[in-house]
Design a protein around this nucleic acid. Structure first.
Lengths: 224, 224
DNA sequence: GGGATGCTTCGACAAGGATCAAACTATGCG
DNA sequence: CGCATAGTTTGATCCTTGTCGAAGCATCCC
């Protein structure tokens, strides 16, 4: 018999369809209320509430009360990474759709992963940043290269002013099956993409749609 | 309601304690028989068999029949990565022991991961072997370098005479969160460590305790 | 062939847990 | 204060699923 971290407990929390849907919905990065999550999961409000308290107790969610609204969000990037990993396996072993829908295709190109960018574009970006030695990659650990501070400062991102979370993190991409950039730097880059209106978020989806000029700008800055 | 990959299905497969124990047992990369897995999970053989067929149907395992033995193994590195991610979350949110016991500390330094060494020592060893180009690492794939055969022959390990399983494999370490060496070579190295009495196994635990001279010898051979 | 071993299937049972309606608490608004 | 909205708790129902004993296949060894 094995001892050690109770992985069955965590996995079974994700293993209920209603809870899985809630967690997927929260992968968009924005915190949601209990009723929104109930709708998202397709269950009644009491049922949703019960699930949410279980997820809270399991440490997978955080709660921010604002008046009579209670906003639930993912507990952190590690939880988001786990959901991505599970999604990847589900995608790989799941029934192959004969024809992936258009939204599906957009998701593969670029999507939000908790608070940063994922998908082909994101994987390409990390590759390029490592290739240019702006970031230094060692296994799953990513560090800033010597030129990182000045490089990101030039595009308005201050890599020093973000103390709490790790600046860089590798996050496995379920569609490409390689790593993309997470951490505060990943979050800051997504912020910039949206702030500059290079891309917009698809309503009710994690897909991120680049406009043609936005795509060009993004590639000039990050893939050049 | 969400559509997309059925993550609840996959997570619920991992979400049963018996199945979770089986999957943890398979994280070493060694394929195991149904009876071994039943023992590992602490359930009867019929129960184990039922779980195994579910895991197979879910695409999480592969099966290799050899005569009347049927060896179950993880379906691939992606599945292993998912287990690792779940383990990481479980570790993070799990009950914080007020004071990690001495055995816990020992486990972090060195432990058995089915048939090879894991923990800080093992991660350091793989790093060093790659640094010296004895092993060639490419993301999660590890191959023998040109000098590998002679290097290991010098310490009594024949890297050629082990056909069945892959010689090298990266195995993610849950305590260090980086890779260590699995595969037949990893197994052979652990054998040597125990045969030379550099270390002993703690009773009823996975911890591996080095004696002071044993530690020095290990470091001389593998970390120099 | 016959017996032993490894494993799966069948059948029955028990337990856990997901679900919702209804009642209850809390916050906001006028 | 009174009413509306957001959310949780309680209780009852029902169904899924994990569990093991016994029997059934398959493979190996003598």
């Amino acid at each position: 018999m094995r001892e050690g971290p109770d992985i069955a407990r965590i996995a079974s929390l994700v293993g209920d369809p209603a809870r899985a849907n809630m967690l997927s919905a929260l992968m968009g990065g924005t915190a949601l209320t209990a009723s929104e999550l109930a709708l998202e999961a397709g269950v009644s409000l009491p049922t949703a509430s019960s699930h949410l308290s279980k997820l809270m107790e399991g440490g997978l969610l955080t709660l921010a009360s604002q008046g009579r609204h209670r906003y639930y969000g993912l507990a952190g990037p590690q939880v988001a990474g786990m959901i991505e990993a599970i999604t990847g396996v589900a995608e790989a072993v799941g029934p192959k759709r004969v024809r992936p829908g258009p939204r599906d295709a957009a998701m593969r190109v670029a999507r939000v992963c908790y608070d940063h960018l994922a998908g082909e574009q994101a994987v390409a970006m990390l590759d390029r940043l490592v290739e240019k030695d702006i970031l230094l990659r060692d296994d799953n650990e990513i560090r800033l290269g010597p030129s990182a501070a000045s490089h990101f400062a030039a595009i308005g991102i201050d890599v020093d002013a973000r103390p709490r979370r790790p600046v860089c993190r590798a996050c496995l991409d379920w569609s490409v099956r390689r790593s993309h950039l997470a951490g505060t730097l990943g979050a800051a880059i997504l912020d910039k993409i949206l702030a500059e209106k290079w891309a917009r978020r698809e309503k009710d989806s994690r897909a991120v749609i680049f406009s043609p000029p936005g795509k060009a700008a993004f590639e000039r800055v990050f893939l050049a």
